[in-house]
């Protein structure tokens, strides 16, 4: 299948989906509207809601807030994850002591922490950042921990024979190895940062995409809920694109599937 046909097929899926939605929610079938507008709204209303948000500019404030929360959650969570992961991997005794607690906290569904964070940090951005951090931290932490522990024996031996001190090994072998593992979890980590932000907003806030969706839901504005979801999806796709670009710059040294010769 060439690119053009693929693209056409992909677009066809969207056209059929939205077409059916519009049809079933506006044209009665044997006297019954299959998708009652009250519960399902319709694509035209949803689209006009999205357009209205962008035309009036109210959406930018919410987007910016969510973006800012995601970035902070990602940055703080990654930093913490890298540092603690590195520390645990290099100090097996510390890792052994904390092991049951790490597992316990990681097993906890993070959503239940949201009320606590709201209580502690208020309705502003920091309670959402905290929620995102708890999600991002563990992903990065486990990856880095594993990455440092599994740093190739051969590379370490080579580094030692080249005369690297313990500190130089950290800098030239363990650290890049850990970072490469962190980057391999970049997409997931960024995704979870956004999830943390939006879920946090949804559960209690005064701004952001999650707030927008929650408000619409509260007034049975189904078109508003769907519009919020569409803006959110577009937002996530754009962020993912940015991550892919960053990855391409940062991981030039890594063979990609297309390049590697068996």
């Amino acid at each position: 299948m060439n690119r053009l046909t693929l693209l056409l097929c992909q677009m066809l899926v969207a056209v059929v989906f939205f077409g059916l939605w519009q049809l079933l929610s506006t044209v009665p079938l044997f006297g019954v509207t299959v998708l009652p507008p009250f519960f399902f709204s319709n694509p035209v209303d949803v689209a006009s809601q999205v357009v209205a948000w962008f035309a009036s500019g109210v959406i930018w404030k919410h987007l910016l807030i969510t973006l800012w929360e995601s970035i902070l959650a990602f940055a703080i969570g990654s930093l913490g994850g890298v540092m603690v992961g590195f520390w645990f991997a290099r100090q097996p005794r510390v890792a052994a002591i904390f092991d049951p607690y790490v597992k316990m906290i990681n097993a906890l569904p993070r959503v239940v922490l949201a009320p606590i964070f709201t209580l502690w940090l208020g309705l502003g951005i920091w309670s959402k950042v905290a929620l995102g951090v708890t999600l991002v931290f563990f992903i990065v932490f486990f990856n880095v921990y594993q990455g440092v522990k599994e740093t190739s024996r051969g590379l370490v031996d080579n580094a030692r024979m080249l005369g690297m001190s313990e500190r130089q090994q950290l800098r030239h072998v363990y650290w890049p190895s850990a970072l490469s593992w962190m980057f391999s979890s970049l997409h997931t980590a960024v995704g979870f940062a956004v999830v943390g932000a939006v879920v946090g907003e949804y559960l209690g806030s005064a701004a952001g995409l999650g707030y927008l969706i929650q408000q619409a839901e509260g007034t049975f504005d189904v078109a508003g809920v769907f519009a919020g979801m569409i803006v959110l999806s577009a937002f996530v796709i754009l962020i993912d694109l940015a991550v892919t670009l960053a990855e391409r710059r940062l991981l030039v040294w890594r063979p990609t599937a297309a390049e590697s010769r068996g």
Binding site: G154, L155, A159, M161, L162, G163, V173, P176, W253
Partner: peptide, 26 residues
């Protein structure tokens, strides 16, 4: 002693020249 290993032991995140230079840099 310098040790040339059987398996590839170059640092994959360094370019060829950086891989060679590292022995001096450290």
């Amino acid at each position: 002693a310098g040790y040339l290993f059987q398996a590839d032991a170059l640092f994959p995140w360094k370019t060829a020249i950086d891989n060679v230079a590292i022995g001096l840099e450290i």
